[in-house]
Design a protein around this nucleic acid. Structure first.
Lengths: 364, 364
DNA sequence: TTGAAAGCGATACCAG
DNA sequence: CTGGTATCGCTTTCAA
């Protein structure tokens, strides 16, 4: 009768406290799964909160809370600008959220494997509150993720998923949309019949397998005159990529197009050029970086699938932040559509990257 | 010496007040250009604020302020889902910002012209704090915009700009990127030589003129074997569009492609189909709606330039909200890249729209 | 384990 | 026009 819902005002912790005959301090503690609350009172509080439809006022919480958060960002240094952009996006989002209570610790490593693991361990040992990481190898990640889970440290993956590792969420481009879009572009541009190939890092990595799968099924469905060859694994090595591409061109002279699902497109382009096949082979690449820009400009690459690294960074940070500070659980998989970049709209993206970089430089 | 910057704490209005020997109340008033402050004290406060690097704490402001805002959203009902999506985006953003102090009044009108003006007048008369609107005709907008300016009501445009009308900002797709991307797709798909055409609403509307310009210059630059015909104005009328397209096909049998810059692609498709030219004419359309989906599926339309109406709505609301509540001035032009939708990635977008619509329905 | 009470930083009302 | 002060909803000592 006199409960807040009937008065039209929004329920506060004071309403919960009064309804239960306890203090707001206790309610606050109960709401946060903190220690120092009886299981019994916690249950009562939670129940009452639900009953009267309590929603915390974030402004009040933010204002009164002195809590500092530390999040670790564990990413690859990278050979292209991809990871720089991801990190920039994270930083950007933190600034735009106007968060002074969040500290970001960047742990950037040169190569995969040990240093990746070391960085993750370091973050856990440093006692950060959350981690944003790139999981290159699910298996080596697993023990560390168990550790993180025990310590209740949420982990958000960027760019690639590592399923069943107990991560809070993964932020990435929709792999199916990427592969299928590349296939459709390829099919429309190539027309006619012949073979098309796909290069990837490793067919066992979810991300790459899915892109290939999407590419292949789309070609089959809409461009039956084209056949898709078995995927070429480049192992992230220039020479491997170059050699395999050369061999491919020798063995299949009727090759009409190549879709490079990774950022390792330069060796492929070089191989096609060296085989003097640039005019008969349509190349669709992934990501966007200075060297590739030239190749798009001169027409060697028809289009590139831009994976919006900055947006990935922003979303990853936002998901982690909201979980940490507001207790919300993000979608387990946050995905979005990649952009198609061709000669025509290339400048739009370059300008955008440049502008943002400048803005960032000025602000620091 | 003892100023806050040296103590490591962030400056507050109390710091300003103490430094000036006045009260926080006065500082607060001065900061808001409110009445009841001497020009002199205001100046002093502003200066001191700048000097010590004062940044208002938004949480505190939000918590203590009981101010209610009302914003009017004046948009077309529309024949496709475009405007529904824009409105959904606005609503979505308001919800995600967790704003209970903002009321949105939707003034949706059937047709352009008078009802558009009436809606704008109604909003001003109702005394809203801000307006999000679609400016179909800059000239008829002008007197109303002067009225808005006098009353200090910020106006954000969506989808189309109306320059020099004193609007706070415009949110739209980058028209150059759109036209250029369409051109590049067209060039790559069509190859060879021949003519390509562009349809638009009216060559005098900035948005359409820019898309045409971008399309034309991109074709000229990268696909010199193709020539771009003079733009076809459809005046947003089915029959006009259909007839003009038919005539075009009769007069120029070597037409290779048509880029429809507006949502009026159905009559064009029908005309091409009736002329039995679907297999020789590549159609690139704009936006995404049920009827068009079929045409993409069956291959009549090679690709559509998706203008991300939901994102446009979100950004428009966000820009207006931040201006209203935080006093920030958004970029005058907020633009982003359109998405390319083809058969391959079509489902990704449909799913996304469907999911969001369902989520919205559930929440209401 | 719980309660009382002191803020967090800004706004807004009421006197002066 | 200006100053004092209660207040917004929640977190966080400090005692009990």
């Amino acid at each position: 009768m006199m409960n807040p819902s009937s008065t039209g005002k929004k329920p506060t912790i004071l309403d919960i406290a009064k309804a239960l005959g306890i203090s707001t301090a206790t309610v606050s503690r109960a709401l946060h799964n903190n220690q120092n609350v009886t299981e019994e009172t916690r249950a009562k509080v939670l129940q009452m909160a639900k009953k009267i439809g309590f929603k915390p006022n974030l402004a009040a919480r933010y204002l009164s809370s002195k809590r500092q958060m530390r999040v670790s960002v564990n990413t690859l240094k990278g050979t292209t600008s991809f990871w720089n952009e991801v990190r920039a996006g994270i930083e950007e989002e933190r600034k735009s959220l106007d968060l002074e209570n969040v500290q970001i610790e960047f742990r950037t490593y040169q190569d995969l494997g040990d240093s990746e693991i070391a960085a993750f361990e370091a973050a856990l040992e440093a006692g950060v509150n959350g981690i944003i990481a790139f999981p290159s190898n699910p298996d080596s990640m697993r023990p560390l993720m168990r550790w993180a889970a025990r310590s209740k440290i949420p982990v958000v993956y960027v760019a690639t998923d590592a399923p069943e590792t107990g991560r809070l969420a993964v932020v990435s481009i929709d792999t199916f949309a990427s592969g299928a879009l590349a296939a459709d572009l390829m099919g429309r541009i190539v027309r006619g019949s012949g073979k098309v190939a796909v290069t990837l890092f490793d067919a066992h990595i979810t991300e790459h397998a899915e892109k290939f799968e999407a590419f292949q099924s789309t070609i089959k469905k809409f461009y039956p005159n084209l056949s898709v060859l078995d995927p070429i694994e480049d192992r992230d090595t220039d020479t491997v990529s170059y050699e395999k591409t050369r061999r491919l061109l020798e063995q299949s002279p009727d090759i009409r197009g190549i879709y490079v699902t990774t950022e390792l497109s330069m060796p492929v382009i070089r191989a096609v050029r060296d085989a003097e096949s640039l005019d008969k082979v349509t190349i669709i690449s992934t990501d966007l970086f200075p060297q590739l820009v030239e190749q798009i400009r001169n027409g060697a690459v028809a289009a590139t699938i831009y994976q919006r690294p900055r947006t990935q960074g922003r979303m990853a940070f936002r998901a982690l932040y909201e979980h940490l500070l507001e207790g919300t659980n993000p979608h387990a998989q946050i995905t979005f559509a990649p952009h198609v970049v061709m000669r025509g709209n290339l400048d739009f993206f370059l300008k955008r990257i440049a502008v943002d970089t400048k803005a960032k430089a000025k602000a620091l």
